[in-house]
Nucleic acid binder design. Structure first.
Length: 499
RNA sequence: GGUCCUUUGGCCGAGUGGCUAGGCAAAGCUCUGCAAAAGCUUCUACAGCGGUUCGAAUCCGCUAGGGACCUCCA
């Protein structure tokens, strides 16, 4: 078995072979920290977190680079062509970097809530102005960019003419040709400066009111929209690296431009495998700023948004995202989230039960079931190898839930499956649920709380022994109101779940 | 207008031409002081029409709906 990934560049699944055996370089487009992250942003970071985790599981040494876009040219919701950071800074009376810091912190908080592993390097655009300027200078020196009024533009036509001959036309990633591009009519800032509409900015001259500005050979300004990723990816991953990830909406123009810039500078195509996650939709429509239909992560976690019927735990969201394939659209809805919440709870509880089951060296009395369990476990690697089919992994894990619960609740014989299979199941589920899918308990209880609950359970037990069901039911009912659910097990013991 | 994707049971969602994914919901049953939990069972869907094929949710064509990108966007 070997890992296969869907490469946007070739539009098909390819066997993954790293450039340097045993090592993987992966770059993922990070957040623009001019505002708070929303549900749509969660998808790539959770998706590529699982990619990162799985590559680690396969034994690769992975350098995972995810940038923070904290500079440059952004557009405000109102579509004014202004630097979003500087504009908001005025509105909120904050320093630009203060604002950037605030949203960076919020982003990190959300990523932690989602239990994502921190990238190996998280470079910022403002920290790499020099690298970006160097890269632009090189592009100019090679003749693929021109300067006008203190701004620098990439000459897409010239690039296309030259590199088409080498099988690297502009549009290679997004599958479009330049001629179609030129037909579009858009009135954009600086459009008249450009020789051709398809050209894009490498460096923009900063108007006086623009707060974020840096000195450059072309005057004071700020870097273009795409150069930071090229510069930082090259710096930390080299002129050619293995994986570049991001949302499908970045495929064009962002990633296309990245390819063009890097190809000119490094004399080779920068990326072997382009991986793109699909969008999260809401009522069938992409969740995005332009559509004014975003649900911020903080709103999701607190339930503080008109569309939300309740708060959703970060693990519910993570589970929700992993239940679909990353290249499919995923429709957001309360029903879907609530289904995920319950499903995850059931899976997690079974997982915890499983880890507490005693194993040994007994033989299976139900060999048919034993075989089935082994098959479900064996299939997991193959599912992940098949372009990270987390949905299939979860489906198999759910097949195991009745087996685990059946043993626990004595609906199945304790030795229905062999001790060896049980041990394997424990190990595999730990690896898959915690290490690869990155799921974790929604809440952890303290030892003190456990003690208090045990006390109440004991009191209730005594009441039940005296057939004082009023008291026993009261304890159960009032604990339930506090979010603690008591369950009388068959063997007379009592278990509880908090949450 | 250009390029491309998509349409799966009440809802979400996976699907490699033949082997009823899975989850949630619903109904019934078992267990139980009552609950809850758990287990078992039931619900066998692939937008429409045509074609290819021994066989199609899966391939091809047409029609209809939805969407994405072409502009900041995960």
């Amino acid at each position: 078995m070997s890992l296969k990934v869907y490469n946007s560049l070739s539009r098909k699944k390819e066997t993954f072979t790293p450039i340097t055996p045993g090592h993987v370089g992966m770059y993922v487009c990070g957040p623009t920290v001019s505002g708070e992250s929303h549900l749509g942003h969660a998808r790539p970071y959770i998706t590529f977190d699982v990619v990162f985790r799985y590559l680690n599981y396969l034994g690769y040494k992975v350098r995972y680079v995810r940038n923070i876009t904290d500079a440059g040219h952004f557009e405000e919701e109102g579509r004014e062509a202004e630097d979003k950071i500087s504009k908001k800074a005025v509105l909120e009376k904050l320093e630009p970097m203060e604002l950037v810091q605030k949203y960076t912190n919020l982003f990190h908080w959300a990523m932690k809530e989602f239990n994502t592993i921190e990238p190996s390097i998280e470079p910022t655009a403002t920290g790499h102005i020099v690298e970006q300027i160097n890269m632009i200078e090189q592009i100019i020196a090679d003749g693929y960019a021109y300067t006008i009024n203190g701004s620098v533009y990439f000459d897409v036509n010239k690039y296309n003419e030259h590199f088409s001959k080498q099988g690297q036309p502009y549009g290679i990633l997004s599958g479009r040709n330049l001629e179609d591009q030129l037909d579009t009519t858009r009135e954009l800032d600086g459009q008249d400066e450009k020789r051709n509409k398809a050209d894009f900015a490498l460096w923009k001259n900063a108007p006086p009111e623009h707060i974020m500005r840096w000195k450059s050979p072309w005057g004071e300004g700020f870097p273009g929209w795409h150069i930071e990723c090229s510069a930082m990816a090259t710096k930390y991953l080299g002129t050619e690296f293995d994986i570049h990830g991001g949302g499908m909406d970045l495929q064009f123009p962002h990633h296309e431009c990245e390819i063009a810039q890097s190809t000119v500078c490094n004399h080779q195509a920068p990326v072997r495998y382009w991986l793109h996650n699909n969008m999260i939709t809401i009522n069938g429509r992409k969740m995005g700023k332009s559509y004014n239909n975003v649900v911020k992560l903080s709103e999701l976690f607190t339930g503080n948004h008109p569309i939300l019927e309740q708060a959703y735990h970060p693990m519910t969201i993570r589970f929700f995202i992993l239940q679909s394939h990353y290249r499919s659209t995923l429709d957001f809805g309360n029903d879907a989230l609530q289904a995920s919440e319950k499903a995850f709870k059931r899976l997690w509880e079974a997982y915890e039960v499983l880890q507490k089951l005693e194993t040994g060296s007994w033989q299976a009395t139900d060999t048919e079931l034993d075989d089935k369990v082994n098959r479900y476990l064996d299939e997991l690697d193959g599912f992940m190898d098949d372009d990270f089919s987390t949905a299939k992994v979860l489906a198999n894990l759910f097949e195991l839930v009745p087996v685990i619960n059946g043993i626990k609740h004595k609906q199945l014989a304790a030795d229905a499956i062999s001790g060896e299979t049980l041990s394997l199941m424990q190990a595999k589920l730990k690896t898959y649920i915690e290490d690869i899918l990155g799921l974790k308990a929604e809440s952890s209880s303290s030892q003190q709380l456990e003690g208090i609950l045990q006390l109440l359970v004991n009191i209730r037990k005594e009441a039940k022994a005296k057939k004082d069901f009023m008291t026993s039911d009261r304890i159960r009912k009032e604990l339930e109101a506090l979010g603690v659910q008591l369950k009388d097990e068959k063997d007379g013991s009592v278990s509880w779940t908090i949450g």
